[in-house]
Design a protein around this nucleic acid. Structure first.
Lengths: 211, 211
DNA sequence: AAGATATCTTTACGGCGTCCAGATCGAGAT
DNA sequence: ATCTCGATCTGGACGCCGTAAAGATATCTT
């Protein structure tokens, strides 16, 4: 009757790691049905368990969403790391990060929404975002320094990092609006559009900007 | 039994303009209970009417939210107009607009959320935002021109306007996160924080930036 | 082997969005 | 003034939701 712990290698409990199964079911539903269709019951259904089963692994629906969001931040982090590694030059590194950020939001719209929804009602970004040496936030800050920002002006550097993050998030949320379709055409596609907008936002520290 | 069309002057139907009453009930609930607590039934309850009554004035819950959002955009528009009128100098006009925008989002958090939620699932900002000569979007664009942007470089001007809007929206959504509290302190309060971040985002057209 | 514990199911409750059948009321026609 | 009609509201119903409590079942410990 019970499937033999299909995918996962470790099976700590008598069902095969349901916690993991629920998170993956949620992710599956999220991207296929959109964020509004994601109900706890639907997740349980998708995972093949009863509607009450999730409560043995998560305090409530919010806690499941937290777990999903956390994996989202990890994925975003990886996307930024990839973008930074692939940047052809320091001059283009910041814009590259910005574009990668927006593309992540475009390609994972429901996940991105969940990430910020949960952050907003905790009124805090996840700790993993700023803590580690190679957290996403630090990656942006480091890139700014490499691009010429003064690393000794701590407050100013933080402000610049926040500014870059806000710019990326703002553009990520605006990018989908029909109003900007003609602009995208005018500059030759969405990618150019993103770069053009970022260029207007001075992501680079001042000494780097052409004068 | 029936109250005599209390506030409204016109009473098109045999109840005193329920459509209006529902929108205002929704706004009341929105700011007092938060956006998640806003259910159609609760709005009907608050308006003193049965749960099914709203369906004679709105196709569904989304349409009621649309109406609420539209009034929100109007309020935002007014806030920006006020900020622009009060700007002490052209040099400070753009930052003033940005700060006013973020303050609107801070002071009407639930309304602001509804505004962007409905915009997002229509994949378009409301038409009133960009159409009229004195629409919010045009106000930003005009301010950019007054600040020195080249009005004949149409595409570039649009891009700059979009950039400014994204910057403001991004900061509006980030501003509440605990992570930035120490930064606010470091620069002497939230208002300085907002201005500082905006300064890092090059809201002014390039010729205006100090080089 | 046996008891303790964690996991899952069943059942239930109240709230939600929405629809439908009727009641009620306002207004135009006669 | 009455009648009729359509717009407006009510009451009840349906299926979904999040969540809690109690019972069943499988695993772990000893």
């Amino acid at each position: 009757m019970r499937e033999s712990h299909s995918t996962a290698e470790a099976r700590p409990y008598h069902h095969g790691d349901l916690r993991r199964g629920l998170i993956e079911a949620a992710r599956r539903l999220l991207e296929s049905e959109g964020p509004t269709a994601l109900s706890l019951r639907a997740v349980a259904r998708e995972a093949g368990v009863s509607p009450a089963a999730p409560y043995h692994h998560f305090k409530d629906k919010g806690e499941l969403l937290d777990a999903v969001a956390q994996e989202g931040w990890q994925k975003l982090d990886e996307a930024l790391a990839r973008a930074k590694a692939e940047a052809p030059s320091i001059r283009e590194a910041m814009t590259g990060l910005g574009v990668a950020y927006v593309c992540f939001a475009r390609d994972n719209p429901a996940l991105y929404r969940v990430m910020y929804d949960t952050a907003r009602d905790k009124e805090a970004l996840p700790e993993t975002m700023q803590n580690g040496e190679d957290s996403a936030y630090c990656k942006v800050r480091n890139t700014l320094v490499e691009a010429g920002a003064d690393p000794t002006a701590a407050t100013d550097l933080e402000l610049a990092t926040v500014a870059a993050w806000c710019a990326a998030h703002g553009l990520a949320e605006m990018r989908g609006f029909k109003q900007f379709d003609h602009l995208k055409d005018a500059v030759g596609g969405e990618n150019n559009f993103l770069r053009a907008v970022f260029n207007h936002m001075g992501l680079f520290p001042s000494p780097q900007r052409e004068c």
